[in-house]
């Protein structure tokens, strides 16, 4: 459907995106990487907002330059920093964009009503955008991207500013919308995409690091993720030698989730008597040790541990 052939974007000597080759079919693709890895640049090139320094983006066998407005007709885009006209109401703003998107007025009017209802803004649709909260504006942004029922939907950090309830609602909306469509969803909030993305694309050092399913990614860490309870002093020693994924203070101890590269033979190898931390450890904590099933956040933290 959409093919990125060796896409590179340079700004002088700085390479923002290097030699990316991707083939994207229908489904939700989560674009995951820390800030500054090139996600937004890549999305902007797919959204026709930027020209690659080299390489081509091909949709159904034709470059998107060739397709021009026919390609943009298939596109829905929500930028990271969503601009809006402060004096417009949500209905007026969406009507304006519907006109630019080439929709006829009647279809646009009913679609706008439908979308505002879906994103929970039907009650405030006649209020000016300048009175909206950040989360409400974000929802207007989501609605505008979905206006034409686009074949390709590009979302750059769409849940920034949404509260957990709104994020859950958005995931629901997207899951429904994504049928028969290509959705590119950029974020650094792992939980946003863990359950809805068919594939995860990761960029590292401005290059494509992987394009895999959540399951495939989690498998790479299977048998390597453990958790244990330790005293704080013991944890400090422990953290120097192991890659810690998360720490949760609990009364007079901490719950630690960490990665062990080599499969340990026993708990003693990790947090027991052979460890440097042993002197600080109490026997009771060793009993709490257990092997964990890796999740996408573990994978994300592990892959980008040096950044």
């Amino acid at each position: 459907m959409l093919r990125l052939e060796n896409i590179t974007k340079k700004y002088g000597d700085f390479t923002a995106v290097a030699d990316i080759h991707l083939e994207l079919e229908q489904g939700v693709y989560g674009l995951l990487s820390p800030n500054g890895a090139g996600k937004t640049t890549l999305l902007k090139m797919i959204a026709t907002l930027m020209t690659p320094t080299s390489g081509e983006i091909i949709y159904d066998g034709k470059t998107i330059q060739e397709l021009g407005e026919h390609y943009r007709e298939l596109l829905g885009y929500m930028p990271q920093h969503f601009g809006y006209y402060r004096d417009y109401t949500a209905v007026r703003y969406l009507s304006y964009l519907a006109a630019l998107k080439g929709m006829d007025r009647k279809t646009a009017a009913s679609r706008i009503e439908e979308l505002l209802d879906m994103v929970g803004l039907a009650d405030v649709k006649r209020k000016k955008l300048k009175t909206y909260s950040g989360g409400m504006l974000q929802r207007v942004g989501i609605a505008q991207a979905m206006l034409t029922n686009p074949k390709i939907l590009i979302l750059d950090e769409p849940t920034a500013g949404l509260d957990p309830r709104e994020r859950a609602r958005f995931r629901e909306l997207l899951a429904e919308f994504a049928k028969d469509r290509l959705v590119l969803y950029s974020t650094h909030i792992v939980s946003d995409i863990e359950n809805i993305a068919n594939r995860i694309i990761m960029l590292k050092e401005h290059q494509l690091y992987c394009n895999s399913t959540v399951e495939e990614l989690c498998q790479t860490l299977e048998g390597k993720i453990y958790s244990a309870y330790m005293e704080e002093a013991a944890y400090k020693e422990f953290a120097k030698e192991h890659f810690v994924l998360s720490v949760k203070p609990e009364r007079n101890r901490v719950a630690v989730r960490f990665v062990v590269e080599e499969q340990p033979e026993s708990i003693g190898e990790i947090v027991g008597k052979d460890s440097k931390a042993v002197g600080c450890m109490q026997e009771q904590y060793a009993r709490d040790w257990r092997l964990e099933y890796p999740n996408l956040e573990d994978v994300f933290l592990y892959i980008y541990r040096e950044e």
């Binding site: 026709t48 907002l49 007709e73 929500m78 601009g83 630019l100």
Partner: peptide, 18 residues
């Protein structure tokens, strides 16, 4: 000032048409 270009440029009729 409103930074609306990004959305408008991805529409069928872009800022340049307007």
């Amino acid at each position: 000032e409103q930074y609306t270009y990004e959305v408008e440029m991805t529409c069928k009729y872009t800022v340049y048409h307007v």
